[in-house]
């Protein structure tokens, strides 16, 4: 798409857990303003990929470059300062803290003025959070918590936003809301890398996608093309099965360690 160097470049990334290769020399890229999806079965290595990029699990081999600079040896807490933020799987809001405290923590790397501006932006995006600002985050509904998790990440004003299974465990109506939000952020020009088991939804919002299978990229291309491919349809979109349920292909390999 873009002629310049990609905003986020992943080269031969390998992640191992006690000798088991959860992610095996994968390479992909994310350009400025793009929304790229990683899809695949449970245990395919999608989350591990995101966690390695965010610095939470060590990179065994290969490299991750953000705007040309390697993140390989950058400690996890420095990575948000470089402009990359991960919204972790399961939302992981700080349940005992207030909504406002959660958002302030999202802007931890920024100046007080920037935080104030960020707060305004997030409240504009999620009026619901403003209403509940002084409430403990743990008392929010699942959907609201997901909004808070994303809002919290936006407080850092990231150049790249990584989202790990944002639809997991949410009611279908709420899943719709989450994906609406992703579309909106995409339209605003936020660069995003999305990991989803709900491949149908993911391919519907993404520009491009990569398909992971047991730690390797087995397919890649424009999201629309992948959604049309017979194999993807068979394996990840549940064609020929009960199509109302987002399906996981049965993982042929053992689950990745977490």
């Amino acid at each position: 798409m873009s002629q310049s160097a990609p905003l986020l470049a992943v080269n031969d990334l390998t992640v191992t857990y006690g000798g088991i290769r959860a992610v095996d020399r994968i390479s992909f890229s994310l350009n400025e303003g793009e929304l790229v999806a990683l899809i695949g079965a449970n245990g395919a290595g999608k989350s591990s990929t995101l966690r390695a990029i965010a610095g939470i699990v060590p990179i065994a081999e290969g490299d991750v470059r953000l705007a040309g600079e390697s993140l390989r040896t950058v400690p996890a807490h420095e990575i948000p300062r470089r402009g990359l933020v991960l919204v972790p799987e399961g939302r992981r809001v700080f349940g005992e803290l207030t909504v406002l405290d959660n958002l302030y923590l999202g802007g931890y790397t920024r100046s007080p003025e920037e935080r104030a501006a960020g707060l305004e932006r997030v409240f504009a995006l999620f009026p619901r959070l403003k209403e509940r600002a002084s409430q403990a985050a743990g008392t929010l509904s699942g959907g609201e918590q997901q909004m808070l998790a994303i809002g919290r990440a936006l407080m850092a004003n990231p150049r790249v936003l990584l989202l790990d299974e944002p639809s997991l465990g949410l009611a279908p109506v709420v899943v719709e809301q989450v994906f609406d939000l992703l579309r909106r952020l995409h339209a605003e020009g936020v660069s995003m890398l999305l990991v989803e088991q709900n491949a149908r939804m993911a391919l519907a919002v993404a520009d491009r996608a990569y398909v992971l299978q047991t730690g390797r990229i087995v397919m890649s291309g424009a999201a629309a093309e992948l959604a049309a491919s017979d194999e993807v349809r068979a394996r990840y979109l549940g064609a020929g099965r009960l199509s109302t349920v987002p399906l996981d292909a049965p993982a042929p390999e053992p689950e990745e360690a977490r």
Binding site: I56, H77, P88, F94, E96, L105, Y108, T109, A156
Partner: peptide, 10 residues
């Protein structure tokens, strides 16, 4: 509460 997520916040 959650050290890993705290690190993700910087």
């Amino acid at each position: 509460i959650d050290a890993e997520t705290a690190r993700l916040m910087g």
